[in-house]
Amino acid sequence: MAEVKLSLQEEGPSSFDIFDENGKAGEMVFDIQGNDLTVYHTEVEPDREGKGYAKLLLDAMVAYVRENQLKVIPLCPYVHLQFRRHEELYKDIWNKINE
């Protein structure tokens, strides 16, 4: 079973990392400035694609954002696509100022 772990960095980007029985399977790279969490990149190892890992990373990020009362700037194509497809699920946390 996959597990998502948060890696917060004071310098440089932070990430949500997903691990399965074979080690690190993917990551979602982000940065926090003020009340905005900017997601830059989501990637899952090619041999682990199709297992829902990107969605698990997205769900972990969304939970963290809501818990910490942040807004998301989805520069990552995957996150942006999910926010656009399911706007009703994410409208409370989507910072559309830069849209």
Rank of each mutant, 00 (worst) to 15 (best):
N68T: 07
N95D: 14
S15M: 10
Q69N: 15
V79L: 03
Q82E: 15
W94G: 12
K24S: 15
W94E: 12
T42P: 01
P13R: 14
V79I: 08
G52I: 08
P77N: 06
V29H: 06
V72I: 14
E27C: 09
V79Q: 07
S7G: 02
K5A: 04
V4L: 11
Y40L: 09
N95R: 08
H86G: 11
F16S: 09
S14N: 07
W94F: 15
I32S: 12
L70N: 02
K96I: 08
E99Q: 13
H80Y: 14
E10S: 12
I32E: 14
V4E: 09
K51I: 09
G12W: 05
Q9V: 11
E88W: 04
D92V: 00
K5W: 00
Y78T: 02
R66W: 07
L89I: 03
E43P: 03
E27W: 05
P46V: 07
K5E: 06
D17F: 00
D36P: 00
Y90L: 13
G26D: 13
V72L: 03
N98R: 09
Q33I: 06
D59K: 13
E10M: 05
P77G: 10
E99P: 07
P46E: 14
V62K: 02
L37R: 01
V29K: 12
F83V: 08
E67R: 04
M28D: 03
Y78R: 03
